[in-house]
């Protein structure tokens, strides 16, 4: 059964898929990685974005990527509100913030899931565009255009976010907040405002990521549960808060998933991300490119 061609095929698809995983994890890399918010509702927001894109595509025939771009301001505001709520109710009160926070975000995720089901039903939904359903032949390898689109957008998104965090004033402020919030306060800056802005950015990125999600494959309301594993695996493996690391970790996950998929079958796929996550947590909790030693 095993053949070199098949393996090569799996690796190529895996790299592309991995870049896509990177794009859907970038937001979490900011919110969980840099801000320490236990954002388990991140994948639920992602699926919500996919449904918003689906709605625009279905009713107004907007291109999915454009639709993703259109909803980013809304998601930015959503992020601002979500962080404010989280801060007022948990971080400000101090003790047990992380533990109650994770329960809180699970509640939010369930609410989003049900609202989607009530509005759109439990069926799978997909979008239409020229590049969906066609493939590019490279020798013996057949690469779907939808993966190529996801790959290109994901890479661009990662580069942009890395530049934003390293070159702009606000981006540096966000990284400063992640390093030492107290020091920032002593210098007269308001760390909460910066964190709120960062959370807004993290959620805004989900607009585009949601578009990619529904471009790559059809979505259903409970898809977020599978992505809890993938996104947290990528972010923890990357080392909290490293954008470049996020992309590398995502590619590792993508390749691992496709190889297992080709060799053992699809039924083992859901466990890959979680097994890698567990392995990383047990062996190297600071991740591959961790900010904490």
């Amino acid at each position: 059964m095993f053949s070199f061609d098949l393996l090569l095929d799996a690796v190529v698809i895996g790299v592309l898929l991995g870049c896509f995983y990177g794009a859907v994890s970038l937001g979490l890399s900011v919110s969980f990685g840099l801000l320490d918010v236990p954002h388990v509702a991140h994948p639920a927001f992602l699926v919500l974005a996919s449904y918003a894109v689906y709605f625009l595509n279905e009713h107004y025939a907007v291109d999915p990527l454009l639709a993703g771009l259109l909803i980013t301001p809304v998601f930015f505001l959503l992020g601002l509100v979500a962080y404010r709520l989280y801060y007022e109710t948990f971080e400000k009160r101090g003790s047990d913030a992380a533990v109650r926070g994770i329960a809180f975000f699970f509640g939010v995720a369930f609410i989003i899931e049900v609202l989607i089901i009530l509005q759109f039903g439990v069926d799978q939904r997909s979008v239409t565009a020229d590049y969906i359903g066609r493939a590019w032949r490279l020798g013996d390898i057949r690469i779907p255009y939808r993966l190529l689109v996801a790959f290109a957008v994901a890479t661009a998104l990662t580069v942009l976010l890395t530049l934003y965090l390293s070159r702009t004033f606000m981006g540096r402020a966000i990284r400063a907040v992640a390093q030492d919030q107290e020091a920032l306060r002593l210098m007269g800056a308001n760390p909460i405002k910066i964190k709120q802005w960062a959370f807004g950015i993290a959620t805004a990125v989900l607009g585009i990521a949601g578009a990619l999600l529904i471009i790559v494959a059809p979505v259903d309301p409970t898809l977020d549960r599978a992505y809890i594993g993938r996104t947290f695996c990528v972010v923890v493996m990357a080392g909290l808060g490293s954008m470049g690391g996020t992309l590398v970790a995502a590619i590792i996950l993508g390749v691992a998933e496709t190889i297992v998929l080709t060799m053992f079958g699809a039924s083992w796929a859901p466990a890959i991300s979680f097994a890698m996550l567990l392995g990383v947590l047990a062996v190297r909790p600071q991740g591959l490119f961790g900010r904490r030693s």
Binding site: A98, V99, G101, F232, V236, F274, L277, L278, L281
Partner: peptide, 11 residues
């Protein structure tokens, strides 16, 4: 903390 919680989901 949260890492323990995530690990239990993974399990």
């Amino acid at each position: 903390g949260i890492f323990f919680s995530i690990a239990t989901i993974a399990l």
